[in-house]
């Protein structure tokens, strides 16, 4: 099966997974391993002496030997994301940044206008930007025009688990940006949502809560691993033509009793 490409780097897994909200660090690690993911998201926060500077978490992440995708979660301005991105680049030694710039506190909807400005600044500064955005085609096209090789429209608001609320918009983005790596970020709650994302032609999915807040996170991580494979392989296989009229699959020719009455 073809590999996922992110700014020239290739990966076997098409599942990107977050590190937050797990019942414990141990479960987090087991779930990440079960998911087969090669890319994990993480963040930066003020150092707290109480948790020893996050040393335990950091040790576990390093031992996983995965590619790190730091985010700018919680930022509300261009200045905040640009500076947090620079801090991430130095600390994590990566120029990858999952760019989150929130425009609405209630829905956690990204601010599309400021996102474009921040993306432009960071790309020019050498970052490889993976912007988290809404499912607006023109926004996504603008981000691609700036030089984003990866764009991550939401399926639904962060942490809702509602799935792909606007498949039409997502499919339109896919059709209009055929050469961009597209990743559904946020909103996925079930393995079936993941399958749907891949069936729409998306290259990967990024999720966190769907696994971390499942009754059994490790088992759910396994389910998403298979869902990603099933969805991607199904997409590559090409679906049958849809029809409005029933068509028997068993031949009618040679049917006994045919017109005997």
């Amino acid at each position: 099966m073809s590999q996922l490409t992110i700014y020239g780097d290739t990966f076997d897994s098409r599942l990107l997974i977050g590190t937050a909200l797990y019942p414990s660090i141990k479960v987090m690690r087991q779930a990440i391993e079960a998911s087969g993911s090669e890319i994990v998201t993480l963040s930066l926060r003020r150092q707290s002496p109480q948790d020893n500077g996050g040393e335990q978490f950091w040790q576990q992440i390093k031992e996983l030997n995965v590619t790190l995708l730091p985010n700018t979660a919680g930022c509300h301005s261009v200045k905040e994301v640009v500076n947090l991105a620079k801090m991430s680049r130095e600390l994590f030694q990566t120029d990858w940044i999952k760019l989150e710039l929130i425009g609405d506190e209630y829905s956690l909807q990204p601010d599309p206008f400021e996102l474009v400005k921040a993306t432009d600044i960071l790309l020019k500064d050498g970052f490889k930007v993976l912007p988290y955005c809404t499912d607006d085609l023109v926004l996504c096209r603008r981000l691609a025009d700036l030089g984003c090789e990866v764009i991550m429209p939401w399926g639904a608001p962060i942490g809702t688990g509602q799935g792909l609320l606007n498949p039409y918009a997502l499919e339109t983005i896919r059709h209009r940006l055929p050469d961009t790596t597209l990743i559904i970020d946020a909103g996925i709650g079930l393995p079936s949502h993941a399958v749907q994302a891949f069936e729409l032609g998306y290259d990967a999915i990024l999720l966190n809560s769907a696994v971390a807040q499942a009754t059994d996170p490790v088992l759910m991580a396994t389910a998403f691993k298979y869902a990603a494979d099933a969805g991607r392989i199904g997409f590559l296989a090409g679906r049958m033509p849809e029809k409005q009229i029933a068509q028997p699959s068993t031949p009618t020719m040679g049917m006994p009793f045919w017109h005997q009455e």
Partner: peptide, 29 residues
């Protein structure tokens, strides 16, 4: 609010009422 590269720590001077933020890795989605 402005990033300071680690090779500039020695030469960066702190003034009255400056705001220093030190961040470390944490869980994130």
């Amino acid at each position: 609010g402005e990033f300071v590269a680690n090779n500039n720590y020695q030469t960066t001077l702190i003034k009255e009422n400056d705001k220093v933020d030190v961040v470390s890795p944490i869980f994130g989605g």
